[in-house]
Design a protein around this nucleic acid. Structure first.
Lengths: 223, 223, 223, 223
DNA sequence: AATGAATGAGGGTTCATTCAT
DNA sequence: TATGAATGAACCCTCATTCAT
């Protein structure tokens, strides 16, 4: 079985497991939740199926009735996240927001960050697992790139280019600007989980972040 | 053995393994290098000692003659990195650079980023392992926080505050400014390793990054 | 974990494994029997779990499903013996026999020896293992002393003292008398297993042993 | 290699290692002593050569320079004991004592017990090892039986028979009498090492033991 | 003679997975 | 559908032994 096959199969597995997350039985959900908890806490390889079973309160065999393989369990918990980020619905939303040339960039970025960070925070354990395991499971990495990164990049480039053409943004390499934006978001997540104890007012923080970011990017208005 | 003991012991293990990295035997070095390679590629838990042995061209038992435990092997490859980042020598350098109020912030940040990114890039596999495993091995995380993060934070705060007092930087929350700086660096690393194929001129990229960053932070001179 | 904890845990393990020896599954019993056989033949440390598995006709993993640890396997085979010797039921029996001042000492000792030697012989491999390993596993030794030796000693002292007070036994150090009795029993076991081939009529042999023993202990009646 | 060959080779090994115990080098003696200590403490299989080397303060390789095999180390420590017990010199002594029909049995037994118990006590760790390992190493067991037990038995039977013929001992099965004597000795050793803390006056204890023993065996004189 | 690095077989134990119930 | 006993490969690690120095 070559890489492509593995990949296809994995993707298929993800899609299969996807449809139903809503229609899952009680036990399936409990298994999935325990897997999320443990994978996030200790990593995929360091969590054993027996632990998951115990934590979920089911027999070990039950796991394999619902998820053919331990790896399928991983896929089953990764896939919905990818879908959520990639779903046309969501992207249409994003597109609409970003495409609105009338709306000030500040508002757009603030909304965007709020929106995405909220999504990430609400699903933090899953996100952590994805970021961890994407490095070691090319199928997952590929799925991210294919389904999210590529599209997001286009969206971003379009947004930046538009503003640049309109003279709102300075004349900088588009890639650098996008990197600055993404870095801002990633860095925020990083700090949040690295130093989780410090209280913070997210709305205010985002405002400041965007302020710094856009001040760095925008053309200085000569007023 | 409670957590503190484990931690102390781990640190001690790191220090022990440290002194010699230069005076390592051929085999020790080969083992360490294979471990670095495999841990970076597949993760700590997913790499077996037998694989490492095979890759290093030694008997499996030989690993344990030189590194009491698989975890000690991890420590032995983590520790020198932490030391390199934390070494007073390096920090003094950093201190000197950052403390020089005469030097323009641009130059300081460019130098700093260059310097640190170089260090990280030259030791990328190790860095990847550290970032991966710190999440699951509290001793490593603690060592990072105790020996690096804390000091770096103070240094950063001092630098930012000084510039702010001097009116060079805008009046922003210090934490937010530091976060912006760190995010810039982290984001750069992230992009570099997420999309490794794109050619790039690091010096130029850093200049642009610092440009955006400082434009965002600095008070706009009314010229 | 200090010694006491280890001990308590070991005892707990013994008790846990105890309840069920009757309700053991077929495989458990086979494992236990193979362990008994091999430990007795070659010693605890010289018998490997893989050998035991092979002898029992199960997979090696199966052993560890039923007995958390190789040592637990040892406990599981030691504990029932200790219980058998220490069980109040048995001791009450012994007490009754020994406490009956009317019954001649000859009969008491003969019954006692018969009874205990039978017990030991029927469980000889286990007994051999216990005697072997008690020397190296303080928990086992402690369990013996706490649960059997202490009680047995009191019982013995009481018996001897009573007979002495009644003038039936000579005026000798109680400890020496007890030692003589116990030595008789131990020596018999020793000879039996050192030179197993010689046919013997146990009833007759015991009678002779008790004869010699009591002749040595009893006051000579002047008739 | 069949059993006989193993046996012959083992015996040869013992003899080889024997000659020199006096002419051993410092290191050899230290190795042997550490082996004795550790084998007695933890058993043969549970003691590793590396432990022995560390305890003896030599390199691990050094052990194998002097003792071809770990088992040879065992033989080297067992053999001198067997020799000591079996040496014609000693036996001649014993023979002389036991053969002296004039001497009262009490004195003979007291002397004998004193003598042998002293020998055993002075070499207790070795004795413990021999008793332990003889059960698992047929060569050792055979050596004991061939060189000691057989001879001792003859000696004992002769002694008992003589006294019986002379009317000093009651008319009992010779084997039973011998067993009583040996049991007395073994039991004493057992108690001594089972309850080592109680102070004791050996001379007095032996006198009592022999008193009980002979009272049990001797014909009651009608004085 | 003495060392200690190197070996690889084998140790006890855990693992993901299967299957009869 | 759910179970959990059973599996045997693979895990990390220790062992007795060898051998170049």
């Amino acid at each position: 079985m070559d890489h492509q096959e593995i990949f296809d199969q994995a993707i298929q597995g993800m899609l299969d497991s996807l449809k139903n997350e809503q229609e899952m039985t009680e036990k399936q959900r409990r298994i999935l939740e325990s897997a999320i908890k443990l994978f996030a806490e200790k990593g995929f390889h360091a969590s054993s199926t027996s632990e998951i079973a115990k934590d979920a309160g089911v027999a070990e065999g039950t796991i394999f009735r619902h998820f053919k393989t331990k790896k399928d369990l991983l896929y089953a918990l990764v896939a919905p996240m990818l879908i959520k980020f990639a779903s046309p619905l969501v992207l249409k939303d994003v597109k609409r927001i970003m495409g609105d040339a009338e709306q000030p960039a500040d508002q757009i970025l603030e909304q965007l960050l709020h929106n995405r960070l909220e999504l990430i925070n609400q699903n933090w354990p899953r996100m952590k697992i994805i970021m961890q395991e994407a490095q070691f499971h090319p199928e997952i990495m590929d799925a991210i790139v294919e389904n999210i990164a590529r599209e997001a990049r286009l969206l971003g480039e379009n947004f930046v280019q538009t503003r640049m053409d309109a003279g709102e943004f300075r004349d900088l390499p588009v890639k650098a600007v996008i990197r600055a934006i993404v870095s801002t978001a990633l860095g925020y997540i990083f700090f949040q989980h690295m130093f989780p104890n410090e209280e913070n007012d997210r709305t205010e923080e985002i405002r400041t972040m965007v302020d710094i970011l856009l001040n760095g990017i925008k053309r200085k208005n000569p007023d």
